[in-house]
Amino acid sequence: MLNIIVCVKAVPDPKEACNIKIDPHSKTLMRCDVPLVVNPLDKNAMEAALQLKEQFDVHISVLSMGPPEAGNIVKECLALGADQGFLLCDPAFGGADAYATAFTLAKGIEKIGAYDVIICGMASSDGSTEWVGPEIAAILNIPVVTMVKEIVESDRDRWKVKASLENGYRLMQVKLPAVFTVTRDLNTPRTLSFSGIIKARTKEITRWAISDLGVPAEAVGLKGSPTIVSELSSTESKREAEIIAGTREEKAEFLVQKLADVGVL
C-alpha cells in the first residue's frame, strides 16, 4: 500500500478574486463574499494521486488547514475519490504565513502517520507563494521536487520525475518518502461525478485543533509566522491612455503612425 497525502488549500474563487480590493481608508481587505474553492493547482495534485490509485494499491488522505468552511473543499476531494479527509481548524492557526502553515501541515502529516508521497499544487492562487510544499519537506526532513510536470517512474520506493526548468526540464530521482509540487502540465483534473458525491456522503472529515496537534500556540498562526504584513498601500498609474478613434482601418493606421512617430516601430 502506497500512502499519499494531498495538501489542498481553500482559496477565494480566482474567477472572482479581482473583486477583492484594499479599502483605501482602513487598509484592510474587502472580501466581498467571494466563495472558497479548491486552489486550482491542488486539483492537479489530487488528480495525480487519483491516477496512481487507478494503477496501484493506494490510500489517499486529503489534508487542509483553514476556516470551518474549508471543510467543503475537503469534502469535494473525498467526492473525487480520496479515502480520508483531515482539516486543521483552530482560531490559533489564523494569520499564518508560509512557514507557519508548512509547520502546522507538517504536524498534521506526522499525526496522520503513514506517508510515502505528499503532493501539493506548486503555488496557491491567492497568496502566490510557492513555499508551503518545499517547507513541509524541509520540516519533515524528506526530499522535495518542485514544479513536477511528468511522473516518469513511480516504483514503490523510488520515483523519477521531470520538473520544469528555464527552457527545459530536469530529470530527478527521488527516494520516498518525498514531497512533490505539481504544475498544470502534469495532467487535466477530472470533474466531480454524481456517484462520487453520493459515496462521499458517508466519508467523515477528521477535524484537528491545536490541542490535537500538541504544538504550542507560539508555533502556529500569526504568532508562529516569521513574516508580517506591515502595510497595505495603493498604487497609482503614471499613464493615461489616449483612446484612438475611427473605423477599424483608421485606428490601425493611426496606431501604426503614432508608434512610428515615437520611434518604437
Binding site: D97, Y99, T146
Partner: peptide, 20 residues
C-alpha cells in the same frame, strides 16, 4: 526555477521568513 525551490528549503531550515 532553482531559486524558487532552494529559497524555501533554506528558509525553513533556518526557520526564517521568505517573501516571494
Amino acid at each position: 526555477f532553482m531559486g524558487r525551490e532552494l529559497a524555501p528549503l533554506v528558509a525553513a531550515r533556518l526557520q526564517t521568513g521568505l517573501t516571494a
